[in-house]
Design a protein around this nucleic acid. Sequence first.
DNA 1: CTGGCGATGTATCGCATTGATACATCGAGG
DNA 2: CCTCGATGTATCAATGCGATACATCGCCAG
Lengths: 188, 188
Amino acid sequence: MLQFAILGLLHDAPMHGYELRKRLNSQLGMFRAFSYGSLYPTLRRMREAGWISEDAPDPAADPKPLASRRGKIAYKLTAEGKERFQTLLAEVHPDAYEDEGFGVHFAFFAQTDASVRLRILEGRRRHVEERREGLRAALSRTRERLDNYTLELQRHGLDSVDREVRWLNELIAHERAGTPPSVTHPEQ
Amino acid sequence: MLQFAILGLLHDAPMHGYELRKRLNSQLGMFRAFSYGSLYPTLRRMREAGWISEDAPDPAADPKPLASRRGKIAYKLTAEGKERFQTLLAEVHPDAYEDEGFGVHFAFFAQTDASVRLRILEGRRRHVEERREGLRAALSRTRERLDNYTLELQRHGLDSVDREVRWLNELIAHERAGTPPSVTHPEQ
DNA sequence: CTGGCGATGTATCGCATTGATACATCGAGG
DNA sequence: CCTCGATGTATCAATGCGATACATCGCCAG
């Protein structure tokens, strides 16, 4: 998940951890927030796996006698890392239906095959529809037994799930027709 | 957060852990999912804090020689637990603006003072509006630089944030007018 | 020109949470 | 009778979070 997002961001250009975190939370963080506490351990694991390399500046001449000597580190993809990203892009893992995973995978849709896009969108729709049915059932089952606020909360939740289904339907229709999405409403 | 939710659910009636988890994910889990791995440790901490008691059936006659002997445990609130719930209901902690915290607190709005309801709704609105401005800025800043899919994702995110603001506006208006919410649209 | 302040940057620690799994009982139905 | 799904308690490794520490740099107000 985090690894997939990092691979995708570094695919464009090498980056420092700081920049990486900013983009994670602005571009991909619609559904998810990431902190340094998970970023740096993940970068270390990815380096150990050989996906990325750390481009540290020369640790040569160092007039500072202090023990804490830190330089800026530019992380970039290795050949294996690019390969790994392509593999992840192509596979339709169940994670791609979950809230977090879907957002990340969707953000890289422009680099994916049309068939993969369609399968992920349809899987996501099935996933969301299942949740919708669960909410609907809960709402009609517990109606009259719950107070207005709880009902309103459930109704709002059902509403937003409903909207996502419609959004997915539009995207799927575009995908089947072969036309790109989001040409319609230009600005709100 | 989890503790608050458990206190609220046990306030109605004693419950087993299994039932507790089901309700956490159906009634309160609109924004959040809970697993046993957090439920049981939390229940243990709450018992140690004196807020709940575990009503275990007699561990007396036990013909099974096996080491693993487990009985059903009914968790229920103590007097301190009820007191603790009232305290949490009345305080407007910053957590009440976050996604997870807001959903839980909102679910117990029927048991809260009108002034607390209003302050939480307004704090939530401010919080969501800030996120909306961030998304708007990101969208207009990166337009033209991103592909259609990423733009569509950001637009969808902005859209749902926008809808929540409108929802909160309605609720706040009802709150100020003294009328209960959700009387309007009866069914979708 | 200097002192502070905010952005950039790397890194770690304790704790909570997840997701998977194990184990156990019980009622319904083929 | 026997399996299957719901009910039920519980733990474990891996992962993530939130806070924090530390360091450099540019800018600009006093």
